[in-house]
Design a protein around this nucleic acid. Structure first.
Length: 470
RNA sequence: GGCGGCGUGGCCAAGCGGUCUAAGGCGAAGGUCUGCAAAACCUUUAUUCAUCGGUUCGAAUCCGAUCGCCGCCUCCA
């Protein structure tokens, strides 16, 4: 498989450090608020990458940090007259809750900054000993001039950055680009004891320390939004490679922004929808399909209309699943000797995904597949092998990798309870009504069922139904 | 000012030197089926890829210029 590596600015063949074991780190949330649908794009695309690696047979160790010490958390705690811990815990719960709703597979570890103080302090001590960090009255800064590769990820040059007007002025720094590794505590702020006095870590530090601790000094994939390339990821490289390793990350993966009305969706611009808000009216599957329909690297212009279009597209998939479930429940299935391997669809799906996770192409393969099997289904309406092969294909691709459908769940919903039997009875009554040309009654039954989300469909072989969320 | 990205049908979006008179989704139009619907299926919907030049036997794809949009350089996924 090929992956675009921000470091080399080109697609590279992905070869993990150790055989079939992949280490992957995705920058997680600062837990001070609900995350928005733009943040969700990173979480979901990271999830799809991880799922596809697993599909390919890799064993993936996946870590996502929780930033629970930060200015924004402190401010929020002050505003709400509560502790930073309370704020952090509240939004950690929210985060997990929303991620689960978005069908994002849980990471193997969710390291928290507050639980890795010693690791971070050790890292800073090490940098200080090596002369790459300096202490000014309890503030410890990283000396950018000591790291010759500084700028290798973002393509920025130290002198060019210096001449830029936006670099913060700080008397204590030797160089305006130097960044804080350890910040001296101000009154009323949470703090930890350290060799430099009471304070807290700078914001790049945790990712370096926790990535190396949980995944090893050199990891395979580190991913995050485009806006993290500089300075965050650049600084992570500087910290980690100056202290502990020749290569911190082998493949840097960055996700394009989610825009709203041609502008980056962000908290500071205020033009955002929280994921939670969107999930009230739209399914996780539709959100995931929408994201999959654009390449992860490109910007995605978000709108509710687009989401609705994806929702409609999903219906094609769901209708297929419904008809499969319906056929299975009907008891009409027969053993047969037909073989349906769908190997060309698997191949095309894999070729698309192997090409830098080209999910839009993969989705196109899925829709081609749907069209193809719908035809087969009319040709072989009772083939057990057909149904079985379709289910396996959908499970592997649309469910396991893309996370946009769930065959098993649909079956469960359909099979549960007395409901199917009751619906069959109503269908029977309606069939009699139709026979007697009592269309008024027939339509009433259909309309009333539609109101509770049961959609009847007539065909020459009888009436079937599907369920729709209302 | 420095660095990076983008401009493909009504909308979204793949394609990145020949199979492109350009995949797939949404939308629209017609048809098959049906008491009517729904679903499904079949047609139709870009001789053209921001514009202008160039390279090449051949360009949406490479190069240059122009126009337009966006992002990073400050917290941000």
């Amino acid at each position: 498989m090929k992956i675009y590596n921000t470091l080399s600015k080109q697609k590279e063949e992905f070869i993990p450090l150790y055989d079939n074991y992949v280490t992957m780190y995705v920058c997680g949330p600062t837990v001070y608020d609900y995350f928005h649908i733009g943040n969700a794009r990173s979480f979901i695309m990271g999830d799809m990458l991880r799922r596809y690696l697993e599909y390919k047979g890799y064993k993936v160790k996946y870590a996502m940090n929780l930033t629970d010490v930060d200015d924004k958390i402190i401010n929020k705690a002050n505003d709400e007259k509560t502790s930073t811990d309370t704020i952090a815990q509240k939004y950690i719960d929210v985060f997990f809750d929303d991620l689960a709703k978005l069908k994002v597979k849980p990471a193997d570890v969710y390291p928290k900054a507050t639980e890795h103080m010693n690791d971070m302090i050790e890292l800073v001590k090490d940098l200080e000993e090596k002369g790459t960090a300096y202490n000014v009255n309890g503030n410890v800064f990283y000396d950018v001039s000591k790291f010759k590769d500084y700028g290798k990820l973002s393509g920025k040059k130290i002198d060019e950055l210096e001449s830029g007007s936006r670099v913060e002025v700080n008397d204590q720094k030797r160089n305006p680009l130097d960044f804080a590794l350890w910040k001296k505590a101000k009154d009323g702020e949470p703090f930890w004891e350290s060799p430099w006095g009471k304070g807290r870590p700078g914001w790049h530090l945790e990712c370096s320390a926790m990535s190396m601790k949980h995944l090893g000094k050199t990891i395979d994939i580190h991913a995050g939004g485009n806006d993290l390339i500089f300075p965050h990821h650049e600084n992570e490289i500087a910290q980690s490679e100056a202290c502990c390793t020749d290569q911190f990350v082998r493949y840097w993966v960055h996700f394009g922004f989610l825009n709203f009305k041609e502008e980056k969706m962000s908290k500071s611009l205020g033009n955002f929808f929280t994921a939670r808000e969107i999930l009230k009216n739209h399914s996780a599957e539709a959100i995931r399909l929408l994201f999959a329909q654009t390449h992860y690297h490109a910007p995605l212009n978000f709108s509710k209309e687009l989401l609705e279009a994806s929702e409609k597209g999903l219906e094609k998939l769901n209708n297929l699943i419904d008809s499969i479930v319906e056929i299975k429940n009907s008891g009409k299935l027969e053993e047969d000797s037909n073989k349906f391997s769908f190997s060309e669809f698997y191949l095309e799906f894999e070729q698309a995904m192997d090409d830098d996770l080209n999910t839009p192409r993969a989705v196109a393969v899925i829709f081609d597949f749907i069209k193809h099997v719908n035809k087969l289904l009319t040709e072989y309406p009772s083939s057990k092998n057909l149904i079985h092969s379709i289910e396996i294909f959908l499970n592997k691709t649309t469910d396991d990798v893309l996370g946009i459908c769930n065959v098993k769940e649909n079956e469960k919903n359909n099979a549960a309870s007395l409901e199917p039997n009751l619906i069959e009875i109503l269908i029977g009554i309606r069939a009699d009504a139709k026979k007697n040309k009592n269309f008024e009654l027939a339509d009433k039954i259909r309309n009333d069922l539609a109101e509770i989300g049961i959609i009847l469909k007539d065909s020459k072989d009888g009436t079937t139904y599907t369920r729709k969320n209302i």
